[in-house]
Simulated assay, not measured.
Amino acid sequence: MIHEVATLTIDPARALDFEAAVAEARPHFEAAGGFISFALHRSVENPARYHLIVGWESVEAHMVDFREAEGFQKWRALAGPFFIETPSVEHFTQTI
């Protein structure tokens, strides 16, 4: 399993609407092949910054299967209008 960690920056005044949009988008992730888990974390020190952490069976499950599916477009349509910076995405494996 790998974790996709997306750093998302929004206008903190729109946080509740953003969180509602992410909750609405969650089923699109869950329907994707290779999906394992989903979490959204908000920074305490910087309330404009979130980490979206999605567990996938592989990098390919995220970057190919999900990114090429209609669910990815729906995710971006729901959450994308809130982004004030281009999201950064990295993939991590657990080592300990």
Rank of each mutant, 00 (worst) to 15 (best):
M1G: 07
M1K: 03
M1L: 08
I2A: 00
I2P: 01
V5G: 00
V5I: 13
L8W: 01
L8M: 11
L8I: 11
T9W: 00
T9R: 02
D11S: 03
A13K: 08
R14Q: 13
D17E: 12
D17A: 11
D17W: 01
F18D: 00
E19C: 03
E19K: 05
A20G: 03
A21I: 03
V22N: 03
E24Y: 02
P27F: 06
F29I: 06
G33W: 04
G34W: 05
G34I: 03
F35R: 04
F35W: 15
I36K: 11
F38D: 00
F38P: 00
A39Y: 14
A39V: 13
A39T: 15
L40E: 00
H41S: 15
V44Q: 10
E45G: 13
E45M: 07
R49V: 11
R49I: 10
L52C: 11
I53S: 04
G55Y: 07
W56E: 02
E57V: 09
E57C: 01
E57H: 08
S58E: 10
H62W: 07
V64P: 01
E68A: 07
G71W: 01
W75D: 09
R76L: 13
A79Y: 02
G80P: 05
F82N: 08
F82V: 05
F83L: 05
F83N: 07
I84M: 05
E85N: 07
P87N: 06
S88K: 14
F92I: 15
Q94I: 15
T95L: 14
T95C: 11
